[in-house]
Amino acid sequence: MAMIQIREALRQAMQEEMRRDESIFLMGEEVAHYNGAYKVSQGMLEEFGEDRVVDTPISENGFAGLGIGAAMVGMRPIIEFMTWNFSLVAYDQIVNSAAKIYQMSGGQYSVPIVFRGPNGPAENLGSQHSTSVESLFAHFPGLKVVTFATAYDAKGLLKAAIRDPNPVVFLESEMTYGIKGEVPDEEYIIELGKADIKRSGTDVTLITWGKQLFTVQKAAESLMAQGIDVEIVDLRSLRPLDHETVFNSVVKTGRAVVIHEGFIFAGVGAELVSRIQEACFDVLQAPVLRVTNRDVPQPYATNLEKLVYPSEDRIIAAVQQVMER
C-alpha cells in the first residue's frame, strides 16, 4: 500500500493501461507539454511521446468527435476535458455520436472511449465553471457515468473505464486531486456498476457520490455522536446504477437521504428517490429526502457560494427530519 494523491492514482491508471495497450492515447487541452491543467498527466508526454499524449487546440466539439471516430476503428482514446463545464460544446458528440453509434449501426461499431476531467464546483469560480453534469449524461442509454471519491476507487474505476467497450463519462473533482489515499501496489480493477458501502449502519441510508462523500462522512460523525447509526452508500457508477445495493440498504434501514451536487430538479437524486419508493415502499419509515445544490446558478461571493452546496448542517437536518418519523 502506498499513500498517493488522487491525481497520481488517476495517472497510474492511465500509465498502466497505456503500457498494456498501444491503442490507448490521451488527448485534450494542455495534457502534454503543460503536463495537464491539474497535473494529472504530469510526465506522461515524456514516457509515451507526442503520438499518445496529445495537446489539442481549444476545440472540444472537434477533439471529442475525433476521439469517437478513432474509437470506432479500434483505438481507445482517453479524452480529457479541462473541466466538464467545457464538455457542453461537445455535448452533441457525446450524446448524439458516442452514445448512439453502437445502436445506430446495429452493433457493428462500438465506441470504446473515456471522457474524463473535473466535474462540479471548485471554489469561487462563478456559475460557468461550477456545473455538475452527471444528470446531463446519466439520462442517456448508451453512456456509462462513473465517479469516485477516494484514490483507491479513482484508480480501479478508471482502469475499468478504459477497458470498457462503451463510452464512459468519468467525473473527477478539481477539489480532491490533492487528497491522498491508500492504493495497493499490485494491480486491481473495480467493476463498473458496483456501489460501495463506505460505512455500515442500521438507522438511515445516506446515498451519495463523488466528493460529497467527504461532506457526508463528516456529517455522519456528528450523527453518530447523536446516536444515529448511518449507512453510507457511495454509488461510484450512476449508470449502470447499482440499485440492488441501494435497495438492500434501504430495506435494512427503512430510511434514506440522497446527497449530491448539482440541482435538485431532474437530478440523479430524483431518479434514486423514484426507484426507492417503487421498490421499497412497504419498508419506508419516512419520505426519502434530497440534499442538493440550491436551485440557482452558482454565485461568486464566498458567503453565497457556501449556501448553495450540500453542507454538514443541511445533511444533519435532513437526517434528523427522516428520523423523527
Binding site: 492515447f25 503520438d51 466539439n61 472537434g62 477533439f63 471529442a64 468527435g65 475525433l66 476521439g67 469517437i68 471516430g69 478513432a70 474509437a71 470506432m72 476503428v73 479500434g74 483505438m75 482514446p77 452533441d92 458528440q93 448524439n96 455520436s97
Partner: peptide
C-alpha cells in the same frame, strides 16, 4: 446531425495515421 459527423472522420484519419 448536420456537420456532427465531420469530426468523426478526423478521428478515423487519426487512427489511420497512427
Amino acid at each position: 446531425i448536420v456537420g456532427g459527423h465531420v469530426p468523426l472522420a478526423t478521428g478515423v484519419a487519426w487512427a489511420i495515421k497512427q
